[in-house]
């Protein structure tokens, strides 16, 4: 049984993020039949949606209907059925949610892949999104500020942790993981990991770059968390990065090209029935 959710299911919440020491943003738990109203989005806004990927076969079938032909083809290419289902639910939910903001039908959305595979909206320069998943949970970030990157990781034992620390963390970051008792090392490593991946996903480059050359200060304010970007200070590619709690047992980070808004709205999506409940 997961810990009690901080927020009632289906409620939209806004939590101040300007102060990095302020209470961590927590995504509401998606459960029950009360659904989040789909709200409009103003300029300079950032919304986070949690999307549970485990759902019924009939809902998977419904969501499959909103996918494009190439998405359906990709869904069928996965080796395991569980991966096919997760992909369909994730893409279907993204289409439903993003289409809601644009007041379009989910199927009409034109999603294209960037140079390194980042999905993005075609012909759209005022709304950006990014998606991440780990285990049975996905998170979608929607931004009107600029390009956005998000990453979540389920906290789990990292195999070969000391090698992963050497490979992925800058020399200055390593002691911050290695000094911790064994039980806390995995989580701390994953905090650095999600910050790095969210930051790189903002620019659509994923982890093709050497992660140990990217240095993060987890205690700095969002606009100064990226200390070093592959030998350049991050003046040219200024992004703000902060943490959030996607669910109990997960860590997450979100990065946006520009400044983070004072509030990040966090909402939960509940499979399939979302459009019928639209009240915004």
């Amino acid at each position: 049984m997961a810990a009690a959710p901080l927020l009632a299911a289906g409620r939209t919440c806004a939590i101040t993020t300007l102060n990095p020491l302020a209470k961590m943003i927590r995504l509401p738990e998606a459960r029950g039949s009360r659904l989040a109203p789909l709200t409009g989005i103003s300029a300079d806004a950032l919304h986070l949606w949690s999307i549970p990927l485990h759902t019924s076969k009939s809902q998977v079938a419904q969501l499959r209907e909103v996918l494009s032909a190439s998405e359906r083809e990709k869904a069928e290419s996965f080796l395991l059925d569980a991966q096919t289902q997760r992909y369909i639910v994730c893409r279907g939910a993204v289409r439903q949610i993003v289409a809601g903001y644009l007041e379009m039908a989910p199927k009409q959305l034109s999603l294209v892949n960037g140079k390194f595979g980042k999905p993005q909206l075609e012909h759209q320069d005022s709304l950006w999104f990014n998606i991440t998943h780990s285990g049975d949970l996905a998170v979608l970030a929607i931004s009107t500020i600029g390009e956005v990157g998000v990453d979540i990781e389920q906290i789990r034992p990292i195999r070969g942790l000391s090698r992963m620390v050497d490979r992925c963390l800058a020399p200055g970051e390593r002691p911050d993981v290695l000094r911790l008792p064994a039980a806390e090392k995995d989580r701390q490593f994953l905090r650095y990991w999600t910050h790095k991946e969210a930051y790189l996903k903002t620019f659509g480059v994923g982890i093709r770059r050497p992660l140990e050359k990217l240095e993060i200060d987890l205690t700095a304010p969002p606009s100064r968390r990226i200390m070093n970007h592959f030998g350049h200070f991050p003046d040219e590619l200024a992004a703000s990065v902060t943490e959030f709690c996607p669910a109990e047992g997960f860590v997450g980070a979100i990065s946006v090209c520009g400044s983070l808004p004072a509030d990040i709205a966090a909402q939960a999506w509940v499979g399939g029935r979302f459009r019928a409940q639209r009240v915004g």
Binding site: F78, L79, Y87, S134, E153, I158, I207
Partner: peptide, 28 residues
Amino acid sequence: QSIDVTAPFETFALDSASAIGMTGDLEQ
């Protein structure tokens, strides 16, 4: 037997942390 050596890695749906983990184990 179900692993197809000619299938693109992305069909295994490894997340990036697992992919980096595999490269690390392979290096060792």
